[in-house]
Amino acid sequence: MRALLTCRPALPQLYAVAPLAWAFRADGWQVLVATRDDFAPEVNRMGLPTLATNENGLAALVGDWRPDLVIAQAPTPMPCRVPLIEYRWDPAATPAGTEADLVIDACPPLLRAEDNCPVLPVRHIALGLATSLETRLLDQPLVYVGGELPVGALEKLGAEFVYDREQRYRIPPDTDVVVHDGDSLLAVNALALGVPQCVLPRTTTAARLTERLSACGVAVSLQRDVADAERVAERVSTLLTFRDCRRRAVELAREIAARPAPTEVVRMVARRFSVRVPGPARDSGDEA
């Protein structure tokens, strides 16, 4: 059986959809990821085969490759009758009416925008994490900083720091605080890891997400126009000293972990659309 997934040319989109793509492959499906040509190497590094296309070329690809399912982050009606699944994960996105036959949603429930659309929940899997920190001093807290932010005064806090200025989402698993600019994937990854957040939102959309994070009790925020290094250090110190945000973040991480795994969701989807997978895929296009 064949599953065609679309991926916009951005790391957050790839890291969000890759666990579902892997789950389809693990269940014996042939998987192909449609993305822009210059982004294909990033997808290939995740062990997924690609075919360069754009939104206008997706219908032609569906007609040529004849998948049994299409999974898209921004679905458009297909000219041929192929089950269309919308994949949602971004808590900052505003859901609109969908043409999809099914919506799979990895967004944590408390961060989801109000929407009457029924969804099939799936667990968010945090990818891109750093596997180890060789110089880690276990008696010091660890702070991850994603992006270019005014954090010069953090060195005074007696903590260790990981500066991810290129924003490759490499959060060490034992991080104590995540500092970021309202990036959706960093926010959801921190939630999945049970880590409190200090957010300096850089856009109006990021500010709305930050409000929801703060309302959930897992984040403190600081407006960019007053976010000098001293104020950022003060907010981070608060998160390291007072553990209420940490406890709440761990609670939400447990809720995320209790959602169905991608492998379970793939089987639910196969049953729903009466798709039977005979066995592991053997064609050369599905080799890792």
Rank of each mutant, 00 (worst) to 15 (best):
T238I: 04
H124W: 02
L32W: 04
A258E: 15
F242E: 09
P75D: 06
L191K: 02
D90T: 04
L193N: 02
W65Y: 13
I125H: 01
C107S: 13
R271T: 15
P201T: 01
R170T: 04
L186T: 01
E160K: 08
V266G: 15
V195T: 13
R231Y: 09
P141Q: 05
E251I: 03
P141D: 10
V232Y: 00
S214L: 13
P95T: 06
R168F: 02
C245G: 10
V43L: 00
L213I: 10
I256W: 01
Q140P: 05
T135E: 13
R170Y: 00
G158A: 01
I171D: 13
E234N: 00
T205M: 07
V62I: 05
A206E: 14
V220G: 11
D164T: 13
L142I: 14
A153H: 00
T241W: 09
F39V: 14
C107I: 12
P91R: 03
F242L: 09
P91F: 05
R224A: 12
A59G: 04
G146Y: 09
R36M: 12
V122S: 07
N116L: 08
A106Y: 02
G57T: 01
A40T: 08
T131Q: 11
P201Q: 00
A227V: 13
V265P: 00
L222D: 11
I71T: 04
D105V: 03
P141C: 09
I71V: 08
T35N: 11
E166R: 12
V145Q: 05
P49H: 07
R212L: 02
R136I: 03
P41S: 08
V269Q: 08
R88N: 01
A96N: 05
C216I: 00
V188D: 05
P280A: 15
F242I: 05
G147T: 09
A192H: 05
A52V: 12
R243L: 14
A233L: 06
V226D: 12
V119G: 06
D228E: 12
C80F: 14
P280S: 14
V269G: 07
R66N: 14
L239E: 11
L4V: 12
V232Q: 00
A206Y: 07
A74Y: 09
V250F: 03
P109L: 04
Q140R: 15
P172F: 01
R243Y: 07
D286N: 15
L5D: 09
Q167V: 02
P91D: 03
